[in-house]
Amino acid sequence: MRLVVENLAGDRGGEPVFDRVSFALSDGECLVVTGENGSGKSTLLRIVAGLLPASGGSVRLDGGGEEWPDVMSACHYLGDRNAMKPALTVAENLSFRQEFLGRPFLSAEEALEEVALPSVASLPFGYLSTGQRRRVAIAGLLVSFRPVWLLDEPTAGLDLGSERRFSALMRAHLEEGGIIVAATHVPLGIEGAKELVMGGDGRE
């Protein structure tokens, strides 16, 4: 499988934020997107996910076969918001994610074990602290399988131990042949990751 981005250009509110961004990632490869605030990291991820239209260039997924025809069908997108309902319990949130997305991978309990929060399953998501919420959202990446992970500031609000645990999860995903694109300004602790620096002037 190969995620190919060619000459991508994106805008926000009609104003161009970047153009001519190109990269290609094969199985087991990770791209870390860095750059200052407003350089278009989030916009880039959303365009790659297919949540925003690109103003130029193309994003495609080669070799996904019938099961993963495009990036959107093959990706987990972890945005700045956690996509969890505060009124529902953590277990309800995760099992909804699993049932709605299909391709179950880990059960909700196992996924919570992976982010070291096994005791919160029965609590409403709204009771959790910011860091805990983020970790539950990370557990959401594990309940159903997707080869491509698109992560927008995944470690925001995490403490050091959780960050380390999360890098281990990402490495495991890469070893299994997954693809990760992560926008961040803290090092994620992944050796051999490609790096893309988004300039303040919108150029790569």
Binding site: A116, S119, Q132, G161
Partner: peptide, 14 residues
């Protein structure tokens, strides 16, 4: 108590 539990889960993890 459930809120306490949420807090304690954090401490256990740390």
């Amino acid at each position: 108590m459930r809120r306490m539990m949420a807090k304690r889960a954090d401490r256990d993890a740390a």
